[in-house]
Design a protein around this nucleic acid. Structure first.
Lengths: 129, 129
DNA sequence: CAGCATCCTGCGTGATACTG
DNA sequence: CAGTATCACGCAGGATGCTG
């Protein structure tokens, strides 16, 4: 039954596409860190550890996955210097750069409306409109 | 040392908080649909089906979860009319409303840079900066 | 240094059936 | 109508250990 074809993202929800594209805990952070210029694999890794003291090290497998995904999405570009010891840099593509403002918007909103809530714990319902 | 406090979401990543808050396939879409005014449970459900032909019906459990999560996050408000047959409306809170522009930014970016890519399938790497 | 190979686990998501 | 109760499954994400 039509399982083969899903035609995902019909047209009514670029949001869904967006969500899939940046799904993953680190993608947005990676892009944000990259906005200041190219970074090497290790630098990205280190960067992701800042502000995450409880966290151990990011599993290489995971980081690698994220980077590949972003590369595949055309948001970042991988530059391998092909030397030893290895040196690989990641940088935002044009498309990726165009996305930075969006992340910026998200961060600004977060800064104003979440302050430091975010962990998923009781947001002290300010709800009541 | 510098902080015995775990201080989740240290400060360097409101993005992470944001991601958690809107994690879930429908949250953003729900909010977007809600921007035009209050909707009932069933209406939201129906709305989510638009543009998702391969998709079956959204599992009540899932939708319920999303709605609770959003309510808990203070982005939407649940209004139970307490009558039979049941009538419940969901609407954006002030905070939720403030978030709409962000979604808008996402949609705009998506419309311009993803068109209809999103499925996760070969984005035909436009990469090369 | 920049990864890849393997195993394991939690939870987000879906499907179905039932209720106030 | 607006949900809750169960069962099941795929996959993101973490932990090691190894390599060119």
């Amino acid at each position: 039954m039509l399982s083969s074809r899903k035609s995902t993202t019909p047209c009514g929800c670029p949001v869904a596409a967006f969500q899939k594209m940046i799904s993953g805990k680190y993608k947005l952070r990676i892009m944000w860190d990259l906005k200041d210029g190219p970074l090497r694999y290790g630098e990205i890794r280190t960067g992701l550890l800042r502000g995450a003291e409880g966290t151990q090290e990011i599993a290489p497998r995971v980081l690698s996955r994220e980077l590949k995904s972003l590369t595949h999405s055309g948001l970042i570009d991988r530059r391998d210097y092909g030397i030893v010891p290895p040196k690989v840099e990641y940088r935002l593509t044009r498309r990726g750069r165009s996305f930075v403002p969006v992340i910026s918007a998200i961060r600004k909103w977060g800064a104003r409306h979440l302050s430091e809530v975010g962990d998923g714990e009781t947001v002290d319902r300010i709800a009541a409109e």
